[in-house]
Nucleic acid binder design. Structure first.
Length: 884
RNA sequence: GGGCGGGUAGCUCAGCUGGCAGAGCACCGGCCUUACAAGCCGGGGGUCACAGGUUCAAAUCCUGUUCCGCCUACCA
């Protein structure tokens, strides 16, 4: 095993005193790029490949340490897999599709999109001044609008890319995509065509959750509850052809004109005699059915309530089940429509009165309408029966949860519109089974998926009334009156994707027939952004377009993501893979927690508690930030703690110094023959095993802590100290078994550098470049083989597995003695007496030379003493000598 | 209301397939020691949220309580 002597690489002693992280980051990014070692090799088989379904970040969002955190987690796993020899598929996408981008573009260029506008070839716009922003916006076509969005998002993408590269993400930059790019649009449209062919999508007109500001439909997954102030209003209703009255309770009095029924619990003695009769509404004098329903809670409000089209989801249910009339008074912009009572569908016992009241509401926002109608209800004239004011008492303030679009500012309304849906409600069991086939890390995150899937109650609404998105590849024929035939849509042709139906026309028609009777019209909507991003595995594998590649990448090995999008990105991706190919999209899903601010609050731009990564990278280095990321357990929300970053930085310094020390040893290496060296290698072997097991189950924080404590406790603070005197000698101590010591030190360092490399690649690459690169012929630690326990099988086991611990115990005991006597740890001991259990004494004798050297002890007397614990070491008669 | 996670040293957290309570930071003391003072050696500090149970043995398993966080439901 004796190989060579001396330093045939760089002169370690000439290395700078301090590690220049910034310089190293630039240097090694260039090296990695030159070597092309992050490239995916499409010729390799599925078994040899490790495919990652990288989350495409939303580029118009703000960049904060949370990005560093979760992307580093994935990079650690990827770097580990690469060192195992896997062919890595690790792409980067940009999610530039969607509302946030639209808003930015509208402001930046001061434009609005109108899909009916004709496309302007070569349109170029610049950022507008604030003065110009006061003028009406320029109206442009959808293709032009999309061009602007694309241009602007490219800038955002650059900022992200710079960060990723500095962080050292080992992404294959030749596999970059953007969700609004041509390729992804093709994929999304292919997906739609496939779902259509398989019967999984349908268009339908019906009450749909609607955001009145964005004026678009949204899906269940984008809804969130918010606690808001509200009030119960008690309103007296009448019974047709009777003097009887009763009081309903509502939080939405403005919907009184849209009242289509009144309901109560069937067992409620107060009201059950009303069943089958007609109610008479105040103000509008409308006859509506009174019917019982078990959904009513008798204890809530007055136990009897009005059903409107539509106040909430239960109203939708009653409307459907009881086949009630439809009175849609809310317009898509959230204002009340112009309605004439007395006409068909808006019958009233007193149309003039009804219209007089309603005219005060028409055109108002829902909020304005609410206060207006409360005023009317407080005056007596509108009562249905009797002359009491319909409003009983004063409104009772409450706080309750109301559904909002997660990006919206006003409560959602249910409005009847035509939308496209993916049918999922009938496939819950199948979806749950797919969830079982996937391994969840951490395991408990699986329950989020399970709960969400079980509680689904609306099919996936995939159409959005927006512009910057992927268009439906769909047109409709118009009949002789110009009415669209929604039942028989014309679909785009696979070969012609991506198609924008607002500029392209379907086969068999000419452009001149657009919008004309007997002609055609484009589907104006775009896909929900999740419709595209739920295809990221297929986008990577080039599903449909390249069967060979698809087979080699799909299902992917791992999906990294955060927990709040399990119900969207995670869920929809599983659904798509199932609907398209009855497959799972990936074998594993690995879920990172959030980064919270130091007070454990979620970071958000509005709270102003966002920690920005750029300056941290500058101040602490990429490795230090990566250390902080790698330190947090998977799936656990983690408060940003600068102390951990500092510890990372210190670890880097320590590795630099320790490596310099170990590699500056000049001397021949020989067999690892000494007991302590063998004991060290034995421990190293175990650490390699543990670390590998941990990384195999994505437990990177455990792995980091295993390697780190081995490095710090076993390597630098003890083992290196033991081998020092032996390798170098010292006052009165001759070097002994130098070759064995140097060999073991290098062996240990090489393994440590490799095991640290996935976490803190820059410092590891630096050390690798000093010697190991040349020695192994491997130009980068990134592709060095991950250490295996078998690598050390030729090195004999130590006499006792306890050697290193016992040496440590003696070392500690003597240091304590020195510390108690206010001596330097480097003080020389002329003579000392050690008492310990006989077995321990025997063990100390086998390692005496190393330990004596480490504690600077010329000679000692060992006294076996029965009755002591194996670990106990008692010292006496310490005699210190002057340094020579 | 249902579900999930968490409560361990002053702080941040690890340990949780049961076996002597751990790390880092902070604090205290010592030390220039020929890799590293951006360092090293040592020290103090805990009713493992609470109550009960299983067990020779519980931070760890079971039951209940409580507090914190998240997911989900709750619009009359």
């Amino acid at each position: 095993m004796t190989v060579e002597s001396s330093n045939d690489t760089i002169d370690i002693s000439q290395l700078p005193k301090h590690f220049d992280a910034t310089a190293a980051e630039a240097k090694f990014q260039a090296l990695w790029s030159d070597l092309g070692i992050f490239r995916y090799d499409p010729s390799k088989s599925r078994d040899e490949t490790f495919a990652v379904d990288t989350p495409p970040p939303t580029v118009s969002g703000s960049l904060h340490v949370g990005h560093v955190f979760s992307y580093t987690h994935t990079d650690i796993i990827v770097r580990y897999q690469r060192m195992l020899g896997k062919n890595i598929y690790y792409p980067m996408g940009w999610d530039d599709n969607g509302l946030p981008t639209e808003r930015r573009v509208q402001n930046y260029y001061h434009v609005r999109c109108d899909p009916k506008e004709p496309f302007e070839e070569g349109l170029e716009l610049k950022q507008v001044s604030s003065a110009e922003r006061k003028k009406p916006p320029r109206i442009i076509s959808r293709p032009n609008f999309i061009d602007l969005c694309t241009t602007l998002t490219m800038e955002d993408e650059k900022v992200f890319k710079d960060l990723w590269q500095r962080l050292g993400l080992s992404v294959d930059w030749s596999e970059e995509y953007s969700t609004i790019g041509k390729f992804c649009r093709t994929m999304a449209q292919l997906s739609f065509l496939d779902l259509f062919k398989k019967g999984h999508v349908y268009g339908a007109e019906g009450p749909t959750m609607w955001d009145v500001d964005f004026q678009t439909a949204i899906a269940q997954a984008e809804v969130e509850d918010r606690e808001v102030d509200s009030a119960f209003h008690d309103i007296r209703f009448g019974v047709l052809d009777s003097d009887e009255t009763y009081v309903i309770s509502t939080t939405r009095p403005e919907l009184l004109p849209a009242c289509v029924g009144v309901t109560f619990h069937p067992d409620d003695d107060r009201y059950k005699h009303l069943s089958g009769k007609k109610a008479l509404t105040p103000l509008f004098h409308t006859e509506v059915p009174l019917f019982p329903s078990t959904l009513v809670e008798p204890d809530k409000g007055t136990g009897i309530l009005m059903v409107c089209t539509f106040g909430d989801q239960t109203d939708v249910q009653w409307w459907r089940e009881e086949k009630l009339g439809l009175k849609q008074i809310i317009l898509q912009n959230g204002r009340l429509a112009n309605i004439a009572f007395g006409k068909n569908g808006w019958e009233s016992r007193s149309p003039d009165l009804a219209n007089a009241f309603y005219s005060q509401l028409a055109g108002k926002t829902l909020k304005q309408a609410r206060s207006a109608i409360v005023d009317m209800l407080q005056s007596a004239e509108g009562a249905a029966g009797g002359n009491e004011p319909p409003l009983v008492g004063s409104p009772k303030q409450i706080r309750h949860a109301v559904k909002f679009f997660e990006k919206g500012e006003k409560p959602l309304e249910f409005i009847i519109t035509r939308q496209w849906f993916v049918r999922l409600l009938d496939k819950k069991d199948q979806l749950l089974r797919k969830g079982e086939e996937i391994k969840w890390f951490p395991g408990f995150m699986h329950s989020r998926y399970r709960d969400w899937t079980q509680n689904l109650n609306i099919d996936w609404c995939i159409s959005r009334q927006r512009y910057f998105g992927v268009s439906f590849p769909v047109w409709y024929r118009l009949d002789g009156e110009g009415k669209p035939d929604y039942e028989n849509p014309i679909l785009g042709k696979k070969e012609e994707l991506p198609v924008d139906p607002s500029t392209a026309h379907p086969d068999g028609f000419s452009e001149g027939q657009r919008g004309k009777p007997n002609g055609f019209m484009a589907e104006p909507d775009v896909f929900d952004t999740w419709f595209t991003s739920s295809l990221t595995p297929q986008i990577g594998s080039h599903w449909v377009l390249d069967e060979e590649r698809h087979r080699r990448l799909f299902p992917m090995d791992v999906r990294p993501q955060s927990h709040e999008i399990i119900r969207t990105w995670g869920f929809y991706t599983i659904a798509k893979a199932m609907l398209h190919e009855d497959e799972i999209p990936w074998k594993n899903i690995k879920i990172s927690g959030w980064v919270l601010d130091p007070d454990r609050k979620k970071m958000s731009k509005s709270k102003g508690n966002v920690v920005v990564p750029a300056e941290l990278l500058e101040k602490f280095s990429s490795d230090a930030l990566r250390y902080w990321s790698g330190n947090a357990r998977l799936g656990v929300d983690t408060a940003y703690d600068e102390n951990i970053v500092k510890i990372g930085k210190r670890l880097v310094v320590k590795i630099y110094n320790a490596s310099k020390f170990v590699l500056s040893q000049k001397g021949a290496v020989s067999d690892i023959s000494c007991e302590l060296d063998r004991a060290f290698v034995d421990r190293l072997r175990k650490v390699v095993g543990t670390t590998t097991e941990q990384l195999n189950v994505f437990n990177f924080s455990g792995a980091l802590s295993t390697v780190e404590s081995f490095f710090w406790n076993s390597f630098t603070d003890t083992y290196v100290e033991f081998s020092k005197m032996r390798a170098w000698g010292g006052e009165g101590i001759e070097p002994k078994d130098q070759g064995s010591a140097i060999a073991a030190l290098r062996l240990g360092l090489e393994a440590l550098i490799k095991m640290f490399a996935p976490f803190i690649p820059y410092i590891c690459e630096e050390v690798w470049s000093w010697r190991f690169a040349k020695e192994t012929g491997i130009g980068s630690v990134c592709i060095a083989p991950w250490p295996k326990e078998e690598d050390y099988r030729d090195i004999p086991l130590p006499e006792s597995p306890k050697s290193l611990d016992t040496a440590g115990a003696v070392y500690s005991a003597i240091n304590r003695e020195k510390s108690d006597n206010q001596l330097s740890r480097g003080a020389y001991i002329e003579k000392i007496t050690l008492s310990a259990a006989p077995a321990t004494i025997a063990l100390i004798e086998t390692i005496a030379n190393d330990v004596k050297g480490a504690v600077r002890c010329d000679s000692w007397e060992l006294i076996p003493k029965d009755g002591l614990d194996e670990e106990a070491i008692e010292l006496s008669n310490m005699q210190v000598r002057e340094r020579k």
